[in-house]
Design a protein around this nucleic acid. Structure first.
Lengths: 212, 212
DNA sequence: ACTGCTACGCGAGTAAGGCTCATGTTAACT
DNA sequence: AGTTAACATGAGCCTTACTCGCGTAGCAGT
């Protein structure tokens, strides 16, 4: 996979069209869910002919992956912007900040409640005997990207020597956070407060083994 | 939703047919993944006419939900059978046992790697202003069922007074476990050992706040 | 055995979606 | 103006989810 996009929009108009398609995709996800999402409707609402849609996206999953990608960028951007303003006395404050920002996006960003930046659907998997073990960083999962960025931020704020297991630990933390917050928003459209609190606790306890 | 099935198979033959459909569904999930799964192919392989397929299952998602349901029963059955044989000195041993059993099913039960017993796909969600807050137990999510059973088992083995927050805590633990193990199996078809180990650690640390 | 009745079995057919491709249009450069 | 290459378009093809009306099997009453 060279890119998540089939063709990278070069001109201004194309960039706007891709952006519009992603916007409408997000809105539709909120309205009808992933299963009922149709490429035709996305194209229609974005006022883009279906043929053009397929110039930019490989397929329906490609569209959703691109949206997840955009959500990922937005999330990281928000984090990076908020860090200098916040008063981070301890690494646990960074955990809280990240989770709060995630929750806020769940509430305010269209489609984010259905597709955030985690994996959307597990791939086919191919014939049952597949290449034994593929390294995590090869897959370029979005959650891997988040984990890496968070690791960099943590190191920056915490110029202490950290063990080599931190990579894995952060990935595990991100994955777990994602899952528990999804649960919190399934239980309550506004995000069940006690589950959000438990999520923070879960991550803090776990990471305490890997950070001072 | 009265049941996950449209019509409950009454006669022996029908029961076998439903079972066969679930079996073939599981095998196909391993072969082609969820997206490419087709009801026609499931029916063809199970040697059941398509019309009959739809007598038992509401739709494609219904089929998969039924499979998840069956997986859930199988998992609980395994746990219950193994508990008397194991030497559970501490509640952490129960955590390990459950995770080990889950891992084993990932490896040996067809389709389990793609659809275990967690939620398969998030539902449409309806118009954006929906009924504020639905209780967790109303949803009858499979992971809620697992959490409840594990709670019962824990109480049985641990006749200590446990706080009221245990319900929530176990649900959070199950959800997190599910996510991290999915990650472990995405990273390595055989289940990345270090991620499985981290998963156990994650759950133990977290639950230590809620159990002695 | 015959007749009516009901519950279940069946698969051709319908509606709709994903995606392509042949043709038309614009841009870029000589 | 002419040539070429890149981009835009939407009718249409193929496949899928799912239905609906007819056929059949079992069975009760006579």
């Amino acid at each position: 996979m060279t890119s998540t996009l089939r063709r990278r929009p070069a001109q201004r108009r194309s960039v706007e069209r891709v952006e519009r398609m992603l916007d409408e995709c997000a809105l539709l996800l909120d309205e009808v869910g992933y299963e009922a999402l149709t490429t035709k409707e996305v194209a229609r609402r974005a006022e883009v002919p279906i043929g053009t849609f397929y110039q930019f996206f490989h397929d329906k999953q490609g569209l959703v992956r691109a949206l997840a990608r955009r959500n990922l960028e937005a999330f990281l951007q928000r984090i990076i912007e908020r860090i200098p303003l916040a008063d981070l006395g301890h690494w646990t404050d960074l955990v809280d900040l990240a989770i709060d920002e995630f929750v806020d996006m769940k509430r305010t960003t269209p489609g984010f409640a259905v597709v955030d930046f985690g994996e959307v659907l597990t791939a086919p998997g191919g014939p049952s005997v597949e290449g034994s073990k593929r390294a995590l960083d090869e897959t370029h999962e979005n959650n891997v990207v988040v984990a890496e960025r968070l690791r960099a931020l943590t190191l920056e704020l915490l110029d202490a020597p950290v063990g080599p297991g931190l990579d894995t630990a952060l990935l595990v933390a991100v994955e777990a956070t994602d899952a528990v917050l999804k649960l919190a928003f399934r239980a309550d459209p506004g995000g069940a407060p006690e589950l959000i609190a438990e999520c923070k606790l879960l991550v803090r306890r776990y990471l305490a083994d890997h950070l001072p």
